[in-house]
Design a binder for these strands. Structure first.
Lengths: 130, 130
DNA sequence: TGCCTCTATGCGCACATTCGCATATATGCT
DNA sequence: AGCATATATGCGAATGTGCGCATAGAGGCA
């Protein structure tokens, strides 16, 4: 990553910054704990950091950082009240995206079951987690 | 990351493997080049590796790896014909997901403009890339 | 067979992410 | 003020990601 091809050297597509921005959102979603927290916020509307920490079972500092990632991506808002900070979804489209992802996951799993045996790369069953 | 809290030590949410799987999909989307390729596949239906490489302007080996990421996540399918390998979207839900992501991006940007000046963490303008 | 093209993979380097601990900062309570 | 609670941040270690070069393997063609 010395310098070239981060932004393609040739034929820069007109919408590169937009792609970067979308990738940032995707990155924010790219962690199980963050997905879980988003789902909880979608369900409950508002949660303080310590509640979310208990939910995902990680250290508070870790959860605080996860929330910062979501905030920078523009997915959540934070509201300070007393000593606590309450996080909530910044807008409803987050729910739509999560729904679409879930729908895709469903479709992928369905398709993988029907293509069983011919498997050549889409990963197998996913029972034993790391 | 010795062992704990990857899967939360306490209260493992019932759907942890599903969250991992969803995160895998999000990770696949979390790179501008991969998003660009997906958009192209959505538009064109099918592209060989060398065409996609030209599109994103990166080394073929890099693009090949990007495509492997998309394949493992279950987003694309590959079809070999002669020397070339043609990639295409694995199912239509991928298009829906991309649409939802775009919609969310739109909403986030809109909201950030309306909250301008009160800015305290959602990143500013986004002109200078990394 | 030999040569060329297309794609995938081994490798190493640079950089990013994630984690928990220790610590700073803010707020509340007495 | 002094102490407890709630979040955020500095730090270092372990791990993951992205990249291109070099190379391997598969297929077409003379």
């Amino acid at each position: 990553m010395s310098q070239p091809a981060n932004q393609p050297a040739s034929i820069p597509p007109p919408a590169w910054p937009r792609l970067q921005r979308t990738a940032l959102i995707a990155k924010a979603l790219a962690h199980p704990s963050r997905l879980l927290m988003l789902a909880e916020l979608l369900r409950a509307g508002e949660r303080c950091v310590c509640e979310l920490a208990a939910l995902v079972g990680a250290d508070i500092s870790t959860v605080s950082r996860h929330l910062a990632v979501l905030r920078v991506a523009g997915l959540v808002r934070d509201r300070k009240q007393g000593q606590q900070v309450f996080y909530s979804l910044r807008n409803p489209e987050v729910g739509l995206l999560l729904g679409a992802a879930d729908q895709l996951l469903e479709a992928v799993v369905r398709e993988q079951q029907s293509t069983l045996g011919a498997g050549s790369g889409t990963l197998g069953d996913f029972s034993g987690g790391r």
